[in-house]
């Protein structure tokens, strides 16, 4: 078995509101999985449950056969294996671009500053931000910030990258640069779980597409299965709504 993340019967509710109802999901090494669905379907919550930014109310999560929810599990260490990219970038405002990519390596991975700098520069080059190492986040555009955020996550040398609607907060003309960066990453064989509204992108990069609706996985399959031959009525309706909007 080469699965890296294995989720069983995952449940999460906020008060009375049951956001995730019995989710099962397995992600293989090197697989690119996109999660689509209308807002409120629970896709972001699912992603945030994987690195335990949200604590699940039930179910199991395994990382390489380790029970992540076990009482004394080393959570910070686990998180270093997962790179997270947020909708709102969440760069550290008190650091410049280079420091943003170095701080985790030095503080958490205990790497030397030279080593950390080398890795950071490599990854900033990958995302095309190596010329901005001295800039403060406040001096960057949204697209630039998001590429730095990807570089920061990559600098921790993660096994899995989690993307939580990485282009939703961007101006339209900046969406492209970020998607291109992600596409390049997908081709390097990195395991990626992506929550997105960019259907064309999802179709293009996904090994597997998951459609979520009202807290459950409604349909799962290859990009062609979902986008060309959706089996479920609600999948069809969702795609119709999305595609109509984007055609307008």
């Amino acid at each position: 078995m080469s699965e890296i993340i294995n989720i069983e019967h995952l449940k999460k509710s906020f008060g009375q509101n049951e956001v995730l109802k019995d989710i099962d999901l397995m992600v293989d090494k090197g697989e690119v999985v996109t999660i689509i669905g209308s807002s409120g379907s629970g896709k972001s919550t699912l992603l945030r449950c994987i690195n335990l930014l949200e604590k699940p109310n039930g179910g199991k999560i395994y990382y390489k056969d380790e029970n992540v929810l076990a009482p004394n599990y080393n959570l910070p260490k686990y998180r270093t294996h997962l790179g997270m990219v947020f909708q709102q970038f969440n760069l550290f405002n008190n650091m410049n671009v280079l420091e943003n990519c170095m701080t985790g390596q030095v503080t958490v991975l205990k790497k030397s500053r030279e080593e950390a700098k080398k890795t950071a520069l490599e990854n900033l080059k990958k995302v095309g931000m190596e010329r901005f190492i001295d800039a403060k986040p406040s001096q960057l555009s949204g697209g630039q910030k998001q590429r730095v955020a990807i570089g920061r996550a990559l600098s921790m040398d993660p096994d899995v990258m989690l993307f939580d609607e990485p282009t939703s907060a961007l101006d339209p003309e900046m969406v492209g640069e970020v998607l291109k960066t992600m596409k390049d990453l997908a081709h390097t064989g990195l395991t990626m779980i992506i929550v997105t509204h960019e259907m064309a992108f999802a179709k293009d990069v996904s090994d597997r597409v998951i459609f979520m609706d009202k807290g459950v996985i409604a349909e799962t399959g290859t990009a062609e299965d979902i986008f060309v031959h959706p089996k479920e009525e609600r999948t069809r309706q969702f795609l119709q709504r999305i595609l109509n909007v984007s055609e307008e």
């Binding site: 997270m84 947020f86 969440n90 550290f92």
Partner: peptide
């Protein structure tokens, strides 16, 4: 903003590290 707390946690920082490196300087 809470996003920076989350980002720090997401790269594996403990609460203390988050405070020291990210929050307190700001």
């Amino acid at each position: 903003d809470t996003g920076q707390f989350e980002a720090a946690q997401a790269i594996g920082m403990t609460h203390g590290q988050t405070m020291r490196k990210v929050v307190v300087p700001q």
